Measured scan of single mutants.
Amino acid sequence: MASQGTKRSYEQMETDGERQNATEIRASVGKMIDGIGRFYIQMCTELKLSDYEGRLIQNSLTIERMVLSAFDERRNKYLEEHPSAGKDPKKTGGPIYKRVDRKWMRELVLYDKEEIRRIWRQANNGDDATAGLTHMMIWHSNLNDTTYQRTRALVRTGMDPRMCSLMQGSTLPRRSGAAGAAVKGVGTMVMELIRMIKRGINDRNFWRGENGRKTRSAYERMCNILKGKFQTAAQRAMMDQVRESRNPGNAEIEDLIFLARSALILRGSVAHKSCLPACVYGPAVASGYDFEKEGYSLVGIDPFKLLQNSQVYSLIRPNENPAHKSQLVWMACNSAAFEDLRVLSFIRGTKVSPRGKLSTRGVQIASNENMDAMESSTLELRSRYWAIRTRSGGNTNQQRASAGQISVQPAFSVQRNLPFDKPTIMAAFTGNTEGRTSDMRAEIIRMMEGAKPEEMSFQGRGVFELSDERAANPIVPSFDMSNEGSYFFGDNAEEYDN
């Protein structure tokens, strides 16, 4: 993207840094990872977990959730003011799984939030270390993106479920800051804005008074975040219109849905970061690795190297396929839920299948599930090659597409044709070009129609051997075009429920 120079890199967003050079960025990201790792080690000690239990991804998720809940100030305040039966607002906890007599047992633990905050700050040299908290939120978000298709949420806001490739980060909490905003897809931002506008339509006082002023500035800020994701002048001009509207209503909703559809071809720039579970960072720190000293990046080879040398386990339900569970977590670790499966298959070195073909449910185990038949197995999170994460949407291309997802959002900077089903997408653009945004709409449609099938995206960008740390010898991959490109292809993934 041309304006790259004016933006802070995501590592800076990730670490609240002012302008830093590459070495400083690597050190501050490393410091953040160190903090998460030290916190995780301490929690495993508190909970008396064995090494194996500490490497269980379900335990990692519970521990991450506990610290996120302990620092969720708004919710904590709300819980104190609106006490609900049987919930102690000062405590947080969740299921911890232990191996007892050759069987997995679930144990519900409860801790004072104050105590968890103390352990977290102690692991982070006394700081609140917001960057580390956001990092864990993005890992949870990436896992949700890989596990669930947001059909219901899309339909509720009037969008087409086939636009799911635009929904990265749709389950990120509001408090995820600049680093969170960077990884949100165009569809996620559109959905947040539509929800806001709908509230304004239904509630006369939404934009009024002292609160209304705050609401208005939040609305304009979200519009600017979305505008910054678009790469064409016409899309940005249309966002200006939406932002400046005196009284946002149905016309703005129409414009936003139009823009979301246009992003299936004229893709937005959305950041991709490899955020790993805390149970990967903990053992690495415990083994003596100093992330701050060595430096770390979320968008280069580092996460690949770390996963190459990590042992992570997962509980497996009786009829689940461990290899499929591994694929789910591998995609989440690489922030690749909406990437082209052919690119992923090449990088991973084994075939990556669409969601609907995987015999696996989510990673988390519900409290009512029976533990008797639970097994555990090693997650295979290694890769054959590594590639640089991208934040450009890439230019655009036609490809055989599917009944489910009709476009992709690249996660890796790797040369390819970008699949999208042009006739299906263009069919949504018939007729409606009147109104105050008509010239911009016409211009956007013209650009979409001009998108050429034979153009290559990320020209000359390749993948790298894991021994090639400096990215000196790019390998331009070859793809098996007979395979499906979309992950949520004609899909039956479970729906995400809060």
Rank of each mutant, 00 (worst) to 15 (best):
R8K: 11
S9D: 10
Y10F: 01
D16R: 09
N21L: 02
T23L: 00
A27W: 01
M32Y: 10
G35N: 08
L47C: 02
K48V: 02
D51S: 00
E53F: 04
N59E: 07
R75F: 11
N76K: 08
L79R: 06
E80N: 04
E80I: 03
P83V: 00
D88Q: 03
W104L: 02
V109F: 01
L110E: 10
D112K: 06
E114K: 09
R117W: 14
G132A: 14
T134D: 07
M136H: 07
A153Y: 09
V155Q: 00
R156E: 08
M159Y: 03
M163T: 08
M167W: 15
M167Y: 05
T171C: 04
P173W: 06
R174Y: 07
A182V: 14
V190F: 05
R195Y: 09
N205F: 02
R208C: 13
N224C: 13
N224Y: 03
L226G: 07
M239C: 06
E244K: 12
G249I: 06
L259N: 09
A260L: 10
P277Q: 10
P283A: 00
G288E: 10
Y289G: 05
F291Y: 06
E292H: 01
K293G: 07
Y296I: 13
P303R: 03
K305H: 03
L315R: 07
M331K: 14
M331R: 03
S335W: 06
F338E: 10
I347D: 07
G349A: 14
S353M: 09
P354M: 10
R355V: 10
R355D: 10
R361I: 08
E369H: 11
M374T: 06
T378F: 07
L379T: 14
Y385H: 03
G394M: 10
N395Y: 02
Q415F: 01
R416K: 14
F420W: 07
F420V: 08
A428V: 05
T430E: 14
G435V: 08
R441S: 12
M447G: 09
M448I: 08
A451M: 15
E455Q: 12
F458M: 10
Q459I: 05
F464W: 09
E465H: 10
L466N: 00
S467F: 00
N473E: 12
P474E: 00
F488S: 06
F489M: 10
D497T: 15
D497I: 15
